[in-house]
Computed example of a mutant assay.
Amino acid sequence: MRLQRYVLSVTGTRILGAAAVLLGILQVLDLLEVTTDILDRGLGMGGVFYYAALRTPRLIEQVAPISVLAGGLFAFSQLARESAIIAMRAAGISAYRIVAMAAPAAVAMMLLDFTCAQLIAPRTDPILDAWWKAHTPAADRKETGPVSFRVGDDLVVAANSTADGRTLNAVKIYRRDKSGRMVERVEAPSAIYAAKGWSLSRAVTTRFAGERVDTITTTQMSWASALRPVDVQALFSDNPAPSADSAKRALLNGGTDRPPSYYETRLLGAYAGPFGALIMLLLSAPVALANFRSRQGAVLLTVGLAAGLVFLVVDGLLSALGESGAVSPILAVWGAPVIFGALAINALVNLEG
């Protein structure tokens, strides 16, 4: 138990240190781009810290995998240099067990990654977007609409929306039959979301039946839709990043402006992405068995770092192909983790043997 705590302590502190350094670098680079704008808008240093706090969850999501790789390489190389690995193996402890001792640190980073990406960031992103737009000078403001999207079988066009996503302005809803012909058009100055769903004010409904056109005007009209305010915020956002919940709603007839393959890949990736931390730990594990009195240590360090970076590139490339529909979403999401995980385990088995 004491040995396990020692290995976990060495690995955990190195991973935490790598995460802190990488997060600090990304935070500084991010602030370099926006600090001048924040200060010019009269928001002061308080605005800088507010922006940094709201951006932190997304930055943690970015640094989590690479911090496990860097921390694992540092930790295992230190244990190898101090001959701690040799002592443990002489006591009958295999390399697999040593990796298992360090695994809880990677699991903790994996859970932090999932929490930030799926629970915290989806709440902070709309707040940051609304705050930034509210303090943008009138001369620099850009219109985000009109935006076209699909809600179930309906096609919807809206000029713009409020920051909370509860109001759509200048709404047009086009309904089609099974053959794809438009059979009805609903136009309304605004659509407001309340507890009972969407309500269209002063709606004008035009029905098309062959050459016949009927028009009906109603003061208030209910719009049965799976669309939610959070979906509207994402649709009108400059940099939407669908969470697992929003991707699932999109696949269940929520608001979508992309093909189904995009949301399927995002949904699967939300749960598969955090496992990248475990893959990074496996890629760094062979360094523990390296002989640092020869060139083997430096070679394995370089190969481990290169393999981790290539994994990120391949994973990102497959995800992009999956989102576009070029490859299956399952292959896009799990292809890189399975391939690189197998390669890492194979290298560990060969070195152990």
Rank of each mutant, 00 (worst) to 15 (best):
R5T: 08
S9A: 15
I15A: 04
L16H: 07
G17S: 12
A18P: 09
V21D: 09
L22F: 13
L23P: 08
G24M: 01
L29G: 13
D30Y: 10
V34G: 08
T35F: 08
L39Q: 14
G44A: 10
G47R: 03
V48I: 14
R55K: 15
R55W: 07
T56L: 15
V63D: 05
V63R: 07
L69E: 12
L69G: 11
F76I: 02
S77H: 01
S77K: 02
R81N: 01
A90S: 15
A90C: 12
A90E: 09
I93A: 03
Y96M: 09
V99M: 03
A100S: 04
M101E: 06
C116W: 05
L119Q: 09
P122C: 08
L128M: 13
W131I: 09
K133Y: 07
P137T: 11
A138H: 14
D140Q: 15
D140T: 05
D140E: 15
R141F: 10
T144S: 10
V147W: 00
F149Q: 08
G152E: 02
D154N: 12
A159W: 11
D164N: 12
L168Q: 04
N169I: 11
A170L: 09
V171K: 06
K172H: 09
I173M: 11
Y174W: 10
K178M: 07
G180E: 10
G180D: 07
R181P: 00
R181V: 08
M182P: 04
M182G: 01
V183T: 15
E187Q: 11
A191K: 05
A191L: 10
Y193Q: 08
A194C: 00
S199E: 13
S201P: 04
A203C: 11
A203I: 12
R207Y: 10
T217F: 09
T218D: 14
P229M: 02
A234H: 00
F236V: 03
S237I: 00
A241E: 14
A241G: 06
A244N: 05
S246T: 15
K248R: 14
T256P: 02
D257N: 13
S261Y: 07
G269N: 15
G269F: 13
Y271F: 15
Y271V: 15
F275N: 09
M280Q: 02
L281C: 10
S284F: 03
L289T: 06
L289H: 05
R293Y: 00
Q296K: 00
A298N: 06
L301D: 03
F311D: 04
V313R: 04
L317G: 09
L331E: 03
A332Y: 04
V333E: 13
W334V: 12
A336R: 03
V338L: 15
N346D: 09
A347D: 01
N350G: 00
